[in-house]
Simulated assay, not measured.
Amino acid sequence: MSIGNSPEDERPLQDVSEEAHTSVGRALRQARIAAGLTVDDVSSATRVRMAIVHAIEADDFAPCGGDVYARGHIRTLAKAVDLDPAPLLEQYAAEHGGGPAPTPAAPLFEAERIRPERRGPNWTAAMVAAIVVVIGFVGFTAVKGGDDGGGKAQVAEGATPSTSKPASPTPRDTKPADEKPEPSDSAIAAAPQDKVTVQVTAPGGQSWISAKDHNGRMLFDGLLKKGDSKTFQDSSKINLILGDAGSIQLYVNGKKIENDFQPGAVERLTYTKGDPEVG
């Protein structure tokens, strides 16, 4: 008969701290592995750079550029691996001081930032402008010369210039020309039926946006400040990425798009000639 602890008592205690608390990054990594996806697969599906995916799975959110973009990445990655993003966002908020903090405009949404094409001077537009100026000058000169000739013709015919005061204009003569009314939002966003036109405004705050045509050519890539507006047009399709969709209002083919985009949400949208329904 032995004296002391039994073999079961001598087993090392199991550290359950890791199981009791799964971090946001660890939860995303476990879900990705369970779905049989690699980091490259997730990066290609979400357009979030591989370096940022690795950092988030290691619970390092500094490369995201701020809380707004970190929350957007968490939501995007969670959807890609079939996770409910709401509990992860609540956990992130609890661990990082509540709601998203305001971020500076300088670090644009790094995950999707694309270097714009470097373009040279637009000589064609400059030549067209010069031709228009020359034609306008010639036309003005011709009209002025014609007026002078008419005056000289009247003097040659012996017409006596009148010394009396000119008659006062009648009320009908003084009626101002009809002024064109200010275009409404729908009129501004209206477009021909053979094209797709998308107007992006930022009434709720600034947001990074990216716009491409049907060939994948970059139309715009940058920060849309609060109150600013951009309009894009293509023959068949416009592809959009909104960094903070909750700050954006869209007009597609002359119609206002009603949406429930959340602040900080990253949205990828495609519109065609037949919309306002998303393509």
Score class of each variant (00 low, 15 high):
Thr38Leu: 02
Lys225Met: 15
Ala245Trp: 06
Arg29Trp: 08
Gln206Val: 04
Ala142Lys: 07
Ala34Val: 01
Arg11Thr: 12
Leu83Met: 12
Glu110Arg: 10
Asp41Ile: 01
Gln262Glu: 14
Val24Ile: 09
Ala94Asn: 05
Asp67Pro: 05
Gly222Cys: 06
Gly98Asn: 03
Glu117Arg: 11
Ala245Leu: 07
Ala177Gly: 13
Gly65Ser: 02
Leu269Ser: 06
Arg115Pro: 08
Ala125Leu: 09
Ile33Ala: 11
Asp244Thr: 15
Glu19Trp: 11
Asp221Thr: 13
Arg49Ser: 11
Glu10Leu: 15
Arg119Gly: 06
Asn122Ser: 12
Gly146Val: 13
Met50Asp: 04
Ser186Lys: 12
Val24Asn: 00
Val128Ser: 05
Ser23Gln: 04
His21Thr: 12
Ser186Asn: 15
Pro104Ala: 03
Arg75Tyr: 03
Val128Ile: 12
Lys212Ala: 14
Glu117Ala: 14
His96Glu: 01
Ala94Asp: 05
Gln30Tyr: 08
Ala45Lys: 12
Val143Gln: 10
Leu242Ser: 08
Glu179Trp: 04
Thr231Cys: 02
Gly120Thr: 08
Arg115Ala: 14
Leu108Asp: 08
Lys256Tyr: 02
Asp173Trp: 00
Pro100Phe: 07
Asn259Tyr: 01
Met50Cys: 02
Ala191Met: 05
Val198Gln: 03
Glu95Asn: 05
Ala142Met: 12
